[in-house]
């Protein structure tokens, strides 16, 4: 459904994309995962026909993003990173406006947006600028869906939205996927990777890895331990001095310690005791996408 071949783009001397090759299958919910500045927005804008790549090519539904940009603009739904609706228009006016410029009506495609729109309906006469963050995102999604696009390009739809709205948003995406819409969504939240069919980990304009979330996590090949003591700061400093340690990163209440080779936990326990740590806890840790990301991006 979406293909890119060696996409490159620079802003002045700063490279934003350094050769992106991507394949997204029809009906797939595909995640672009990476921090700010990884190149996610640039990639999505190129696919939305809003930017020209310096090099390489890209196709949506076998249509070229440069040559066939008009055709693509008819068939995609695009949601930019920041809230891009008219704040001084009401919910209903926004929706009607976008329906009309796509040459359709709310009624014609109501089926598709019904689940989302019922939540907005009580506020339909409220100005979009007065909606809560979560509601704004829902309205923006409705506007992007109103013309029944075959591909949905969503640029960081959950950034700055509270956890409840974030979860609701992902539930909506799952339902849209069930209606056979191909969805490309970018996010800086690593934990959202598990909600996608497949993800691409991006950093500094390059793709680190593309796979299913489970396979990515399973590809972690080093012993990983979660360690905790009374003084986390001291713990980090001491583990960095620990010879078998590969990487040491704080990870919530624990510190994730990856090892160059298998080491008995007792050995680590003893090492920490020697350095005056108390309340030592050491356990096996399940690697997360973040562990993978850090491992890959450090190479």
């Amino acid at each position: 459904m979406i293909q890119t071949q060696n996409l490159r783009k620079s802003y002045g001397t700063t490279p934003a994309l350094r050769g992106i090759n991507l394949q997204v299958q029809p009906g797939e919910l595909f995640g672009l995962i990476g921090p700010d500045g990884a190149g996610k927005t640039t990639l999505i804008r190129i696919l939305a026909t809003l930017l020209l790549a310096d090099e390489g090519s890209a196709q949506l539904d076998h249509k070229d993003v440069v040559a066939d940009y008009r055709a693509i603009r008819r068939s995609i739904g695009y949601m930019p990173g920041r809230f891009s609706l008219y704040q001084d228009l009401t919910v209903e006016e926004n929706l009607t406006f976008f329906a009309t410029i796509f040459g359709t009506t709310i009624e014609e495609n109501y089926e598709l947006i019904r689940d989302i729109y019922v939540q907005l309906e009580p506020f339909k006469d409220r100005r979009a600028g007065k909606l809560s963050g979560g509601m704004k995102q829902k309205l923006a999604l409705c506007c992007a869906l109103i013309h029944k696009p075959t591909v949905l390009l969503l640029d960081e739809p959950t950034t700055g939205v509270d956890p409840v709205s974030r979860q609701e948003f992902w539930e909506m995406l799952q339902r849209l996927k069930a209606k056979n819409i191909t969805i490309l969504v970018s996010t800086p939240y690593m934990d959202e990777a598990s909600l996608c069919d497949r993800v691409a980990l991006m950093q500094d304009g390059a793709i680190l890895q593309v796979d299913e979330p489970d396979s990515i996590v399973n590809s972690y090949d080093k012993p990983l331990l979660a360690v905790k003591t009374a003084n986390i700061y001291q713990l980090i400093q001491d583990l960095r001095q620990f010879e078998p340690a590969h990487t040491v990163f704080p990870f919530g209440e624990y510190v994730h310690l990856s090892l160059k080779s298998v080491v008995w936990p007792e050995l680590i326990h003893g090492y920490l005791l020697d350095r005056g740590h108390a309340d030592i806890e050491i356990k096996q840790a399940m690697p997360t996408i973040e562990d993978i990301f850090m491992e890959k991006s450090q190479v």
């Binding site: 921090p35 980090i236 704080p250 991006s297």
Partner: peptide, 21 residues
């Protein structure tokens, strides 16, 4: 630390731990 890459985020939290320490 919203939107910051995981490695930098860890470095950031280390700075916070240090400060609190």
């Amino acid at each position: 630390t919203g939107g910051v890459d995981p490695v930098t985020r860890r470095q950031f939290w280390e700075m916070i731990y240090k400060t609190a320490n």
